[in-house]
Nucleic acid binder design. Structure first.
Length: 851
RNA sequence: GCCCGGAUGGUGAAAUCGGCAGACACAGCGGACUUAAAAUCCGCAGACCUUAAACGGUCGUGGGGGUUCAAGUCCCCCUCCGGGCACCA
């Protein structure tokens, strides 16, 4: 906007000027620390409502994704206040993590300083947006000791319960981050932070949380999360990856020391068709054999290397199947047959038992492998109807039956699976077994900017937990950040060297820090009691507020954050801290913000800065556009012209409302007519306005409680404002009395309050209303007033629209049909034809079928 | 390969239970106001055919089939786009 225009706009008293209105109200709101405070849980008589948006990483600047996320949550929070709920609406900072260390290296700023100044900047932006967070009582900053102390406290509790443990394991290693990554942080074989960095596999001693102890509950609980999007529920099910089957032990033939191989299979019913055993190259027994077999060893080593390379390149599915016979055989416990044992490059050591029985006749992959090495193929499953020309491999259907399978011949596959597993268990060579894809949660990170793991290594006592009274284990402030030599903390002697709490001897601290997903797994509980110095939170408070009524965030957290926080909730429940099983009743995942068809990103150069938008059009217009341009669950294409359009709409509302505000203010100062008195002798124009008003109230109220299509909510407010503008003359010349005008504008302001809080507040005040508009009562739609007294009925002939007839609302079917037949166009269309039948949908349509 | 979404004018979209396809906006075009512009206000606006214009007609929700008096919406098949899982035994 040219400067000149802007200046002139500022001088015009009638013109909507968000750059004047918004800072004025923001100053007042900022000065009132209790403005958005929730009522005390012990005394509040209102029903509670906990609305939460995912806390951001404080990168320094809000982006449009944030704006969208918070606009949704803020509209909901304000709406619920107006509906009379006791609303908890907090915000915090997911403020540990690698970018702070990268910034420290790049700009030579300590991570803490960098992070805290980013937080200050982003908090300012959020306040400028007018977001209704309780900063004074609830703000949570995960990188500060008053928060991470409780991460450590939880770690100790989990250690006591055996839920935190240490083991050597293969880990994902990003050379650029110089740290371990969780599986979830590996995207297609690449680091989630470095698109071009392949992740390597390394062996390290790591701390793990036993999430697998809760895997059944995590999976089964998904069924009950009916307030969560199906998409997220499906993603979590896939991620957990339950697979039901059986473990069967095959004895190795001619082996005196009882050596045996246990395979995992989901198809125990096909065991009579097994023609070989396939082992992962890293299977312990393979290692053992290779150690003294000079022919086998190099081949196995090659396969191990190949698997590792393929995994790192995320191309495991692409490697060509290849195997080597070990020259040994295993005994099928069901048949007594000896089956050759092979080592194969497509078998994973860390899934199931690292060993399979190969049934070529009924498994695609086994069929391919058997074909390549001329292994026998033996059919043991048939469709219910006997066929001779069955194409192999034949994967069983529900009604398939077993053939050539001893005493199980003729059984249906599903029954056979159960019975054969039971048989194996009874005979002691197997059992039914469920396997999961989900692994325990590796939480060690060789980084500085995270929660120190509160453990000490003592030469005499071994692993010693830091006693509670010594918490928090503080991160040292003075530190040089490097990206080599493992953990930065190991370079700090004051941190590293410690007295063993058990024996008083010399000990050394754990120098790894915790995965930042620990921080975000329970932060929303801390909001309920953010200043508690003696406990992570007061259980009574958490039990009042939990579960979260509505959680809102990006779908990119569907697996990582949302599984970990579900897990943490169950752990806290079992520690007796809370009563709820799940953190959030309802979850909403908003769509991405797109510009020119691509997700906004620095690399694409299609970033639109919220600051620029707000400076140009104001917070209200920016927020409202984010809600108007698309339904909140879909992707949103950012078009600046659209923001300008919303700004024009708000200007229209401002001009119309302020025009009548003084007389409305005077009117409210006097006695106010209500109900019948308001309607007595009201003009058509007045009735039309009230009707549209109540229709709008009904629509928005319904949408808030259901499908959240705020785009159509805002459209309906636009329709209302168009109707008001169309009646401006009628209002000016007295056709619409002051009572009605006051009612219309006051209600319009209430309807705007969740979407455009600054403007609504300004108009509220100009109309002489006191207090905060978002604490006023949400209007109640009057069904009678909202009813149309004349309705349009489309009339079809043979299903094609011919004309629309107007009839009085509530007209009888016969009257409406008669009106349809009287219509000239309809009459012309059916003239000379026989009416076969007539369809009448009450209040909707008439369809006359003719021949 | 399996499992979820999605595809509607020039653009973002609407149509909530099978009942007027394109609400509400954006961009565009025409007009009013203005010396002029901006702002504002009013009007037009799916495509095609017909017409001087209007009236009128036909087609139209990714493609093909089906159910129905009636389909963007339900069923079957297919294409493309997005997301998740994947030699997972």
């Amino acid at each position: 906007m040219p400067e000149e225009t802007q200046n002139r706009a500022a001088e015009d008293p009638i013109r909507y000027n968000p750059t004047e209105i918004e800072p004025r109200w923001q100053a007042q709101w900022d000065a009132d620390a209790s403005l958005y405070a929730a009522e005390d849980e012990a005394t509040s008589k209102k029903p509670k409502y906990y609305v939460l948006e995912m806390l951001p990483y404080p990168s320094g600047k809000l982006h449009m994704g944030h704006v969208r996320n918070y606009s949704i949550g803020d509209a909901l929070a304000r709406y619920q206040w107006m509906r009379g709920y006791n609303v908890l609406h907090p915000m915090g900072w997911d403020s540990f993590g690698l970018p702070a260390e990268n910034a420290a290296i790049k700009n030579n700023i300590p991570p803490r300083e960098w992070t805290l100044s980013n937080i200050a900047e982003m908090r300012t932006q959020m306040r400028r947006m007018g977001l209704s967070y309780d900063w004074a009582q609830r703000e949570v900053t995960t990188c500060l000791p008053d928060y991470y102390k409780w991460n450590q406290w939880f770690f100790l509790r989990m250690y006591e319960k055996g839920l935190a443990y240490r083991k050597q394991s293969k880990v994902n290693w990003c050379p650029q981050c110089a740290t371990v990554l969780a599986n979830e942080q590996v995207v297609g074989g690449y680091c989630w932070r470095h698109d071009d960095q392949l992740v390597e596999q390394r062996d390290l001693e790591q701390w793990f949380f036993r999430i697998t102890d809760y895997v059944d509950e995590l999976l089964d609980g998904i069924d009950k999360l009916d307030g969560w999007p199906d998409k997220v529920r499906t993603m979590q099910r896939n991620w957990i990856g339950r697979s039901e089957g059986a473990e069967i032990t095959f004895k190795v033939k001619d082996c005196t020391d009882g050596m045996a191989i246990t395979v995992f299979t989901t198809r125990i019913d096909t065991i009579f068709g097994a023609t070989s055993i396939q082992l992962a190259p890293e299977h312990p027994i393979v290692k053992h054999w290779a150690s003294f077999d000079d022919t086998l060893r190099p081949q196995v080593e090659e396969m191990v290397a190949q698997q590792k390379a393929a995994k790192e390149a995320d191309a495991f599915g692409n490697i060509e199947k290849h195997g080597v016979p070990t020259g040994r055989e295993a005994i099928n416990p069901f048949t007594g047959e000896a089956l050759p044992i092979w080592v194969a490059n497509y078998i994973l050591a860390d899934y199931g038992t690292g060993a399979i029985m190969s049934v070529p006749a009924h498994d695609e992959r086994d069929y391919e492998f058997a074909g390549k090495y001329n292994l026998p193929i033996k059919r043991v499953i048939a469709p219910n109807v006997d066929t001779d020309d069955l194409a192999l491999p034949y994967v069983a259907e529900e009604e398939s039956v077993l053939i050539d399978s001893g005493e199980w011949t003729g059984e249906a596959v599903l029954e056979a699976q159960e019975k054969m597993a039971a048989h194996a268990e009874a005979k002691g060579f197997g059992k039914a077994k469920t396997t999961f894809r989900l692994k325990d949660w590796g939480v060690s990170r060789q980084r500085y900017w995270g929660t120190p793991i509160p453990m000490i290594y003592c030469d005499g006592c071994g692993i010693v937990p830091v006693p509670d009274e010594q918490l928090p284990v503080l991160l040292p402030e003075k530190i040089e950040i490097t990206q080599t030599n493992g953990s930065p903390l190991s370079q700090v002697p004051e941190f590293l060297n410690v007295t063993c709490p058990k024996c008083g001897g010399k000990g050394r601290r754990e120098t790894d820090t915790m995965d930042t997903f620990v921080d975000s797994s329970w932060y929303f509980y801390r909001y309920t009691d953010a200043k508690n110095a003696n406990a992570p939170f007061d259980s009574a408070k958490a039990n009042y507020w939990f579960p979260i009524d509505q959680y809102i965030g990006g779908v990119e957290h569907a697996i990582l954050h949302l599984i970990y926080s579900r897990y943490w909730t169950k752990v806290m429940r079992d520690l007796g801290l809370i009563k709820n099983d799940e953190p959030a009743t309802r979850l909403f995942t908003q769509g991405m913000v797109i510009k020119n068809g691509a997700k906004m990103s620095k690399s694409k150069g299609n970033i639109v800065s919220p600051d620029d938008m707000i400076a140009k059009y104001g917070s209200d217009a920016t927020r409202m556009y984010a809600l108007f341009a698309a339904p909140p669950d879909k992707d949103l294409e950012w078009q600046e012209e659209g923001v300008a359009g919303i700004s024009r709409f708000l200007a229209r509302v401002y001009r119309l409302t302020t025009k009548y505000a003084p007389e409305i203010a005077a009117h409210f100062a006097e006695e106010k007519k209500t109900g019948e008195a308001l309607l007595a002798g009201l003009s058509t124009e007045g009735m039309n306005l009230l009707r549209k008003l109540h229709q709008t109230v009904a629509k928005i109220t319904q949408d808030f409680s259901g499908r959240w299509h705020f785009n159509t909510c805002i459209a309906s407010i636009m329709i209302l404002v168009n109707e008001i503008a169309a009646n401006e003359q009628a209002m000016d010349n007295g056709l619409v009395p002051i009572d009605t005008r006051a009612e219309v504008f006051r209600t319009l302001t209430l309807l705007l309050a969740p979407f455009a809080p600054f403007l609504a507040q300004e108009l509220w005040a100009q109309m002489g209303q006191t207090g905060q508009v978002f604490r006023a009562s949400w209007p109640i739609a009057d069904e009678e007033l909202a009813k149309e007294d004349e309705i349009e009925i489309p009339v079809q002939v043979n299903g094609k629209l011919v004309n629309v007839v107007r009839v009085a609302a509530g007209s009888e079917e016969e009257m409406i049909k008669a009106a349809a037949h009287e219509d000239e166009k309809v009459a012309a269309r059916i003239a000379g034809k026989t009416v076969v039948k007539q369809i009448y949908v009450p209040g909707k349509l008439v369809n006359i079928v003719v021949k």
